[in-house]
């Protein structure tokens, strides 16, 4: 095993690298620290491509032409990697060399909006029951519902409203629902970074 000049005694020593492919490359590949960071990075990868496998059609099977530059951009923007993780991938794709192919088929956007709605329903611990996500690139809405019954999981709905809601002021907007009904439109909230 190679001797390492970077601190690596504790997991905390590695925190800044756990979401950074560039920082991982500074650790020797035969060191446990490299493997621990690799484990962390693989989960960001799988969280993206296992849930939105369509994106691999854009990038090629290893996903790296999306994953690496997105993670570098996310680091620069200090993205929080909360439930909106997937929506920020779309924001990045839209200003990347993949833009034309991305916008040619709405399946990518639908998959990304559904993935973020599901992630909100999994992670959010507030009292809201559901989230509605809208995008300036489509009139469709995606709703994520939290688990409402002991026999059910989270549920995701694609809505094609007869009367479209106003377009979000930013590329994406969202609002949350206090009950298991879509019966309000309090206006769009912008994504937090």
């Amino acid at each position: 095993m190679t001797l390492l000049s970077l601190p690596s005694r504790t997991d905390r020593d590695l925190y800044p690298a756990l979401m950074s492919p560039q920082m991982n490359a500074k650790y020797p590949a035969d060191h446990k620290a490299f493997v621990r960071i690799d484990v962390s990075l693989r989960i960001y990868w799988h969280t993206l491509f296992d849930i939105c496998p369509e994106l691999l059609e854009l990038s090629g099977p290893d996903g790296m032409s999306i994953f690496r530059p997105f993670m570098a951009w996310a680091e620069e923007k200090k993205l929080a990697f909360d439930w909106s993780y997937y929506l920020w991938v779309y924001v990045w794709l839209r200003q990347s060399p993949f833009k034309e192919r991305l916008l040619a088929d709405e399946k990518y956007l639908r998959s990304i909006m559904a993935a973020s709605a599901a992630r909100w329903a999994i992670l959010d611990r507030g009292r809201s029951r559901g989230i509605v996500i809208g995008c300036a690139d489509t009139a469709d809405l995606v709703i994520g519902w939290k688990c409402r019954n002991v026999r059910l999981g989270r549920e995701i709905e694609l809505i094609e409203p007869e009367e479209p809601l106003p377009t979000p002021p930013d590329l994406f907007g969202y609002f949350t629902l206090p009950s298991f009904e879509l019966d309000i439109f309090p206006g769009w909230q912008s994504l937090a970074r």
Partner: peptide, 21 residues
């Protein structure tokens, strides 16, 4: 556990530093 570092979420959660923390 640690769920985030400097406001950015871990997807593989972090272990604390038992001595320092």
């Amino acid at each position: 556990l640690r769920f985030s570092h400097e406001g950015r979420a871990f997807f593989h959660l972090g272990e604390i530093d038992y001595a320092a923390e």
